[in-house]
Amino acid sequence: MDQPLKILLIDDDSDDREIFSLVMQSIYPSLVTDSAIDGVEALHKLKNDGYDPDLIFLDLNMPRMNGLDCLRNIRQIERFTRRPVIVFSTSSNPRDISASHAAGATDYIVKGNEISTIKQSLAQVLKKYNPRSFAHE
């Protein structure tokens, strides 16, 4: 039996963390969703060798450390250099999208206003970046 997919969400907004967790549960009930309230907490977790999320979702506008700085720091950690990190933001500004890609984001999704939209984009991402569907490197 495959181990359940481990997800890390980095988002300072507790409502968004709740929404994310509920939607993820409805797509893959066996998913393990962890969260960090900002970049500082996230890096603290990620630097721990035993901590190994398969997918990381990242908000952009956060206090203490903004999303892009956090992203760059994540990419410095060896085992996360090529790990899927998806920016998950309310901004649909093309400048934010290109900046995210430039900073090393694997993909970018906009937080929708409706559950159905959020569910659809998250499901697509999970399908696309599910490491179980890749050949092992």
């Binding site: 409502d15 309310t90 409706e114 559950i115």
Partner: peptide
Amino acid sequence: LQEPLRKIHVFSEILEE
């Protein structure tokens, strides 16, 4: 203003479900 509005919408949907 969009931020709280989005939350109201989404949590209303969650409530419906």
